[in-house]
């Protein structure tokens, strides 16, 4: 009787063991892929920041001091974003036949960083916010794009735009106008996303950061204008 009950229990647990091992291994692989996606996305963001801002002194061949052509900058970023499809594909293979939501905690950080890079490149090229469906078209169909990840990723964009705007302010001429454009864009984004904050966990914190960034951009542009007027007088 005792032995039978013990065997019964051990059988149950052996069964669990296989399931748990599979789950844990898959989790581990997804975390690794997501980390790779994060690293590559961050590199793309840095690449986008290195694109010379119009008005900078360029080298002899129209190449900026960091070796990136003004015109081809976003092109190169787009090539790299396309290149990341392999990683996204690998991610979707791990999710094949799985309940994808179960692994959202593993893939979300990578996904959000990717969306941040994508939306930054998109903004620099088109001057508008990338839409949910446009982001989706970059992902393999198996990977669902939660609205929360889209919103959180796009929310991070404002931080990058702050950096970009501050460098643009340092350059006299049309790029200072661009900083003002960025300021308007960030203000619109912040207003649009505000209504969605109650629905998405973590979004209100990011909204706070966006507001801080917006204040800094506004301050920067106003200082620039003040400085210019005082130089000219």
């Amino acid at each position: 009787m005792v032995a039978a009950s013990r065997d019964h229990i051990l059988t149950i647990f052996k069964d669990f063991s296989t399931t748990l091992d599979d789950h844990n291994d898959r989790k581990e692989r997804l975390v690794k892929i997501a980390r790779d996606i994060t690293v590559l996305s961050k590199r793309i963001i840095f690449l986008l920041h290195r694109i010379p801002i119009p008005g900078h002194n360029h080298g002899p061949n129209g190449v900026g001091e960091r070796g990136i052509s003004n015109i081809g900058g976003t092109d190169e970023a787009y090539v790299k974003l396309e290149g990341m499809k392999k990683l996204l594909q690998a991610m979707s293979e791990q999710l094949q036949g799985q309940e994808v939501e179960r692994y959202s905690a593993m893939i979300s950080p990578g996904l959000q960083e990717y969306i941040e890079a994508l939306s930054f490149a998109h903004y620099l090229r088109h001057k508008v916010l990338i839409s949910y469906n446009e982001v989706k078209s970059y992902l393999p169909p198996i990977i669902p794009l939660p609205y929360s990840d889209y919103l959180l990723g796009v929310s991070d964009l404002t931080g990058e735009l702050l950096r970009w705007a501050i460098s643009a302010i340092g350059v006299d001429g049309p790029s200072r106008q661009k900083a003002t454009e960025v300021c308007t864009f960030v203000r619109t984004c912040s207003a649009d996303i505000e209504a969605l904050t109650p629905y998405v966990r973590g979004l209100s914190r990011k909204q706070g950061i966006t507001t801080e960034s917006l204040k800094k951009i506004e301050f920067g542009t106003s200082i620039a204008r003040f400085a210019v007027s005082s130089w000219r007088s």
């Binding site: 839409s131 919103l151 649009d192 996303i193 209504a195 629905y199």
Partner: peptide
């Protein structure tokens, strides 16, 4: 508010319900 955000809003509202 553009269409993109409006759609997301509607979807999130349904989920909240």
């Amino acid at each position: 508010m553009d269409l993109n955000i409006a759609e997301i809003h509607a979807h999130l509202e349904r989920e909240a319900q």
